[in-house]
Nucleic acid binder design. Structure first.
Length: 256
DNA sequence: ATGGTTGAATGTCAA
């Protein structure tokens, strides 16, 4: 089973990149973040024409997550389904075959000390609760998406420079580790030990791509049973090199 | 690389 994640930074702006990539890579399940499209404007027919089902949780202008999949999922959940975090479309989860997949767009946090940073921390705490209430670490569970945290020094272009800032902050590490302690492993690091393997290169910084000024903030985590079935996990940088790209690129996990 | 790029929406926010 081929599973992948991608922050599109607008699904409609990335339609041709997505269609090309789906046809060449043929994932069973692709989780997308920052679709930035309301459900009634989702271009489902474009994906259905090449054999993909669409399952989405969108909102106007911001956020939005979805699954594109060869088989229709079951047990679809959207959001936390509580009154505390009701409004932003950052979470969609579903069962695909014998695997439960959670796809999230974790809040960016904007800047340390801001209200949005506090929201990011609280969102991660709420997500921790969500995972523990809903799933078992003995099951086949994958958590993937734009996690917006480069957890380790080798996951960012200059750890010393950015440590303490948003995306590479000990308070974020604490919240993330508390989730992973439940029983999730970074699938990419099972198969890759090298530094400078990134999934995101800022639009702001000119030639961030050329100089590889990037971050590994898009992740695929799995429970033990998933880790045992892992064939490979890798980053596909090619779509980031195309015209009008997203600022992120795809991460893929092949599971037996 | 402490500036600047991009998208949705059409002024300005979010990333």
């Amino acid at each position: 089973m081929r599973i992948a994640t991608f922050n599109a930074a607008s699904l409609r702006a990335r339609l041709s990149i997505l269609l090309d990539w789906l046809e060449s890579t043929q994932p069973d399940v692709l989780g997308i973040q920052e679709t930035k499209v309301e459900d009634d404007k989702f271009p489902a027919e474009e994906f259905e024409a090449i054999g993909y089902h669409c399952t989405f949780n969108g909102q106007k202008s911001y956020n939005g997550v979805c699954f594109l999949s060869l088989e229709a999922p079951t047990e679809v959940t959207k959001g936390f389904q509580d009154p505390v975090f009701p409004e932003d479309a950052r979470l969609i989860a579903a069962r695909f075959g014998d695997i439960q997949i959670i796809n999230t767009y974790v809040p960016n946090g904007t800047s340390v000390g801001s209200e949005k940073f506090d929201y990011k921390l609280r969102w991660l705490e709420r997500f921790n609760q969500f995972v523990r209430q809903r799933y078992t670490p003995a099951g086949n569970v994958i958590w993937m998406g734009d996690i917006n945290i480069a957890r380790h020094p080798e996951d960012v272009y200059d750890s010393k420079k950015v440590l303490g800032g948003v995306g590479h902050n000990p308070k974020e590490f604490e919240r993330l580790d508390a989730i992973l302690e439940w029983g999730l492993t970074d699938l990419f690091r099972i198969k890759n030990s090298s530094e400078d393997q990134f999934t995101y290169w800022e639009f702001f910084i000119r030639s961030s791509l050329d100089k590889n000024i990037g971050w590994r903030i898009d992740h695929i985590y799995g429970t033990d049973s998933i880790a045992k079935r892992l064939i490979d996990c890798y980053i596909d940088k090619e779509p980031r090199l195309r015209e009008r790209p997203s600022d992120h690129t795809f991460v893929i996990a092949d599971i037996e």
